[in-house]
């Protein structure tokens, strides 16, 4: 848990800022038969980012990176909305959209593990081409659908709780189980540590890499359904734009190393929540739009500095007596989700 201490403190600080500006920030009430409040908003709007970040975490754990998730988000929403606007079958539309996303993920995995292209280049292909594909599907227009059952995925409620939050909990639970209760997590970290050595040790490295890329695309696909369902429309140009960068940021804030070999699902969720809380904070505190990006950058920079043991050592040693001479060694201890 120690590694998650700093992100947790940052999240707490952000929430405290909100409480200062909006005294009713923590109040959660029932409205129109569902939970209503700022905290619920953060979870609801953060849900797609958490999903994309979970997929990204596993990809990064294998030493890779997936830049194409934003385009996959757009494709998934576009295809689902197109199918629904044509014949209205929500279930088939969702299955078709997610199926295509898995296929796109397999393609990424094939390029990385099968052909040996560097992950950043391999997924850059789909990042650019995928946006075009989404626009091709929507014909460059915004497709508006009017389907109450599709609306549930991103904008609906089950037992007063936003459906999107429940969906995230399920995906998080399944992922945590597969990677932390079964051997898969260790295998992923092993491949991320050294793919060739893992292969020689008898791990099917190639299969693992392809699987995580497919998983990342599937997560992005579900996120895409959520985003488009939340506004009952598909926008091929803007849906999921730059979400890959937010996801990478969430993973990094959560303490997963970009060089692979180690990951923390709990940290990633925390990272995504920090990003979403920051966004909500900016809206409710009333930061002028011209300076929004600067404020975001400052907070992110502060989080990253706080996360660095070296930086903490330098700054806090001056303030008080050093607590432990070498905290860096301890940082390498793995954290379970």
């Amino acid at each position: 848990m120690k590694r998650l201490l700093w992100p947790l403190l940052v999240l707490a600080a952000l929430l405290a800022v909100n409480l200062f500006f909006t005294p009713s920030f923590f109040s959660v009430e029932m409205k129109e038969g569902h939970l209503y409040g700022s905290l619920i908003d953060i979870l609801r709007f953060g849900a797609p980012l958490i999903l994309v970040s979970l997929g990204m975490t596993l990809v990064i754990a294998t030493g890779g990176i997936d830049l194409s998730v934003g385009s996959v988000v757009a494709i998934s929403g576009a295809l689902a909305c197109l199918r629904i606007s044509e014949d209205g079958g929500v279930f088939s539309a969702v299955v078709l959209a997610l199926g295509l996303c898995v296929l796109l993920g397999l393609w990424n995995g094939f390029l990385v593990a099968g052909v040996g292209i560097q992950p950043i280049i391999a997924t850059l292909i789909l990042m650019v081409a995928g946006r075009g594909l989404a626009q091709l599907i929507t014909d460059g227009q915004i497709i508006t659908v009017n389907s109450p059952s599709y609306k549930v995925i991103g904008g609906g409620y089950l037992l007063t709780v936003p459906f999107g939050i429940l969906l995230v909990l399920v995906v998080l639970g399944v992922t945590a189980f597969l990677t932390r209760r079964l051997a898969l997590g260790v295998l992923i970290e092993s491949v991320g540590g050294n793919a060739e050595a893992s292969r020689l040790a008898g791990i099917r490295a190639r299969g693992i890499v392809i699987t995580v890329y497919a998983f990342a695309a599937l997560c992005a696909g579900v996120a895409g359904l959520m985003i488009s369902s939340n506004v009952s429309s598909a926008d091929g140009n803007n849906a999921g734009l730059w979400i890959e960068l937010d996801a990478i940021l969430a993973v990094v804030i959560g303490g997963t190393s970009l060089s692979g070999g180690r990951f923390s699902l709990g940290g990633t969720v925390l990272g995504a929540l920090i990003i979403q809380t920051l966004t909500t904070t900016i809206y409710s505190v009333g930061v002028p739009p011209e300076t929004t990006l600067l404020v975001k950058a400052l907070v992110v920079a502060a989080v990253c500095l706080l996360q660095s043991p070296k930086f903490r050592d330098k700054v806090f040693r001056r303030a008080g007596p050093p607590s432990s001479p070498r905290p860096a060694a301890e940082e390498k201890v793995r954290v379970t989700a």
Partner: peptide
Amino acid sequence: GKEVMEAFLKA
């Protein structure tokens, strides 16, 4: 538009 408006409504 939806996300920002949600925050406006609460603040």
